[in-house]
Design a protein around this nucleic acid. Structure first.
Lengths: 339, 339
DNA sequence: TTGAAAGCGCTAACAT
DNA sequence: ATGTTAGCGCTTTCAA
């Protein structure tokens, strides 16, 4: 059935160790002629090493776990932003010779279980709230990298965008357009450092401009299209004097556009909207969303680089913070004097 | 370091086999009191079985490969539809006690390699063109399931939507609105049975209505937003008499909306548009897309069910074909008399 | 430059 | 109801 090292060794008339050395590129230890002979047989027989056997013997799996929150009965959280990260992370890992285990996680303990079970060489956490990240405990030396987390948990390494700066840029943009009363929409602060930071940057820019922050304009909304629609429908009634909204995610902002439209408000005529992420969707909706762009390519590259570095033995680093920038499109315009 | 079966066995004063039997739920073979004692130790020590060792000894990995096309230097193809499938498939597999290896594949031979290397219990192919599926060779008894494929390859089992019916429904809907000259937009036929079938259903409905099919209204376009925009911009010039377009994917149809708008054509005033898939995006764009909905939940459920059944030993089945239905929204309306 | 022996953690098959 | 033996396919260590 399966072609094993021994089969190759027998056919080549050498020991399994010699074949193993050829396979693993331990030149130096094997003569040129042997290398060629073995390689020919390997190719002809279609030999592929057993990852299980390797993992067991070498205690290294060359597999990285990509763990995503998922309630027991639920599907993985595959937001457009996460979907983009999946593809990017897989490519990077593949090019580095690693494989990717994609796994939904309901309880923090399952992270530990996944690592132990598959002998994962490293773990990348995508989309966990800080409280969850806080609770992860070390698993031997296995590097654990948390994307978009502000958890102080020392067993994890962080890679995230400059959320504070993003909040600042959004506010500055709106202020420069004359907006003075801006609603901030996003998930509850407590759970998310990301949201806290975006909010802090947003408030800082306003204070710098001499505007007083009014907490009544903080609105809690899920990161979902539906939540955006609901918020948009009620905005004019709930915040009659607001001329702009900063939403902490494009998907939420996109829903907002729809909700505002349904309530008869025009964007950006009556209300300006700024999103966050710059997912593809943001230029598909009408009007096209002005947003704060994250560099998802850099984020995935850094994440993989850091995990692999730690696997190679380097010490965990300070969190890596990636730059963001404003992408002005059609959903923002001058504040209406009349409102 | 790692807690092993032997550690548990030593502490419990039994043999490893007894512990193994407890772990694997081979009740019957072990006394109640032993089970309890062992389970307590397992929980207390945080024992997690080694998947590698299991895979090696039992010759079963409880891991399924989700393989997606990806050129060497490129990222995985993570279209919105694929992203939805990722999440759905992972959930199903997780609930069944399986793990998911997500892997981009540049050459068909890599499928074989992935299976051999990780001793995969099964494989799900997502997004491959028929020509690629044709070329896959059997890997022992390993079930290979191809999603959305019309390849006659006998080593694979198919799960797909009723594409012919989808094409028919789209055409019927447009015809009933008075459209007589409808453009068909999608990737090249040759490569894709999916597109062929949608086209065939589309043509059949027209012929049934007494319309003559005119091949000049077949337009080749990538399944991408950009291709849709380009097509939309040139549509009025290239097909001045067309009153509607059927696009084989929502992402393409969404681009079409934008391109038509850019060229000054109104939807559905001047041109009606029907998409395919019913991804989230289709109700986020303006106007909301009329589309043919696929049942992605059923598709993922069936895919997992079939793979697991075949792992259990049942024979490969006929392709499973899932129903589709029309979702009328805002992008279609009565044909203009004037055009 | 090459090989032999031991063992990674588990299970299947056969004892008892 | 429980234990023993013999691997699964590979790498590590030590020897030649």
């Amino acid at each position: 059935m399966r072609v094993t090292l021994k089969d190759i060794a027998d056919e080549a008339g050498v020991s399994v160790m010699t074949v193993s050395n050829v396979i693993n590129g331990n030149r130096g230890r094997v003569s040129e002629s042997t290398i060629e002979r073995v390689q020919e047989i390997v190719a002809r027989r279609g030999y592929v090493p057993s990852a299980s056997a390797r993992s067991l013997a070498a205690n290294a799996s060359r597999m990285i776990g990509l763990l995503v929150p998922a309630a027991d009965e639920d599907s993985l959280m595959v937001s457009p932003h996460n979907a983009a990260m999946f593809g990017l992370l897989e490519r990077r890992l593949r090019k580095a010779g690693y494989h990717l285990l994609l796994r939904g996680v309901a309880r923090p303990s399952e992270v530990l279980e996944a690592v132990k079970s598959w002998n994962l060489d490293g773990v990348i956490l995508l989309g966990f709230v800080d409280a969850d990240v806080d609770s992860f405990t070390a698993v031997g030396e296995t590097p654990i990298l948390a994307l978009d987390s502000y958890s102080p948990n020392v067993v994890t390494t962080g890679v995230r965008s400059n959320d504070f700066e993003g909040g600042r840029l959004a506010a500055e943009h709106l202020i420069s357009l004359g907006h003075r009363r801006i609603v901030f929409a996003g998930p509850a602060f407590a759970a998310s450092g990301v949201v806290q930071q975006r909010h802090a940057g947003f408030v800082a820019a306003q204070e710098k401009a001499g505007l007083r922050w009014d907490a009544s304009r903080d609105v809690v909304a899920d990161t979902s299209y539906a939540a955006g629609v609901e918020l948009g429908r009620g905005l004019v009634r709930g915040h009659p004097d607001a001329t702009a909204v900063f939403a902490t995610a494009d998907i939420l902002a996109a829903g907002l556009l729809e909700g505002l439209r349904a309530s008869g408000a025009s964007v950006p005529g009556d209300v300006s909207v700024v999103g966050f992420d710059d997912i593809d969707l943001s230029s598909y909706v009408t009007p096209k969303l002005t947003t704060i762009a994250q560099d998802v390519v850099a984020k995935s590259d850094e994440a993989v680089r850091l995990v692999l570095d730690e696997i190679e033995g380097s010490r965990p680093t300070e969190p890596v913070v990636l730059p963001v920038h404003l992408v002005p499109r059609e959903s923002t315009g001058p504040a209406q004097r009349s409102r």
